[in-house]
């Protein structure tokens, strides 16, 4: 079986004031279908940099990233955008929903950049909105929702293109503990249905809901792989 994601010797360096700083170094990862992995580490450990590379938002300085058998090295901007749209669903800490836009329109957003015909967008979006239990809030604007509801909309948006992988960056970071628990349960349920999830967090308690934990320190994996 082809891994969903394979990272080989992934490195990211930044040039700041003529000095090269290693943010991530020699990261090797294999994520298979159905995995539920947490990438943890303290602040400054390189979690965000690694997540950006795994999400194809940033280009590695060295190494390769293979997504569903496709090597992303050398892909141009358009190709990377297409892979991101099709294969990866993002869940952000601060939800990142479009303001004054309805739940339905927010969830449909990734579809407008896909190759799926326009007439099918609404049907697909309604289906995932139902999965996260927000079909009674379709026409509500994002600013009318609670924190937990917003994150559920974000999760629905991440699922709408049936991606190979969900990348969640501190998904409960902006939520109270009760709402955070609800989101955690949702992520666990989604994983049980076969959805591959990578969780990036500094919260060890959150990391415990996953099946595997990878610990980063100073840009390198020190535990877990």
């Amino acid at each position: 079986m082809i891994p969903v994601l394979e990272a080989k010797n992934l490195c990211k360096n930044y040039d700041i004031g003529g000095v090269s700083i290693k943010a991530v170094c020699n990261v090797n990862l294999i994520i298979n279908k159905g995995d539920f992995v947490a990438i943890t580490g303290k602040s400054g450990s390189g979690k965000s940099t690694l997540m950006h590379m795994l999400g194809l938002l940033d280009t590695p300085s060295n190494g390769e990233l293979i997504l569903n058998g496709k090597n992303t090295k050398g892909m141009n901007e358009k190709e990377l955008a297409q892979v991101r749209n099709k294969e990866i669903g993002f869940v952000f800490q601060s939800f990142n929903l479009l303001q004054r836009t309805t739940v339905l329109e927010n969830v449909m957003l990734p579809l407008i950049y896909s190759t799926i015909p326009n007439e099918e967008h609404e049907k697909i979006a309604l289906n995932v909105i139902k999965q996260v239990g927000l079909d009674h809030r379709l026409k509500n604007k994002s600013n009318e929702l609670s924190g937990g509801e917003r994150q559920r909309v974000a999760i629905a948006r991440a699922l709408v293109n049936s991606p190979s992988l969900i990348l969640a960056d501190e998904p409960t970071g902006n939520l109270d503990s009760k709402t955070g628990d609800e989101i955690e349960k949702m992520l666990v349920e989604l994983n049980k249905k076969g959805i591959t999830i990578i969780l990036v967090t500094h919260d060890n308690d959150l990391a415990q809901i996953t099946k595997k934990q990878i610990v980063l320190r100073d840009g390198e994996i020190v535990d877990g792989y």
Binding site: L57, A81, Q82, R84, F90, N96, L98, Y113
Partner: peptide, 9 residues
């Protein structure tokens, strides 16, 4: 940034 993350070029 969001649109680009979701697949906009």
């Amino acid at each position: 940034g969001l649109r680009k993350a979701l697949g906009a070029t």
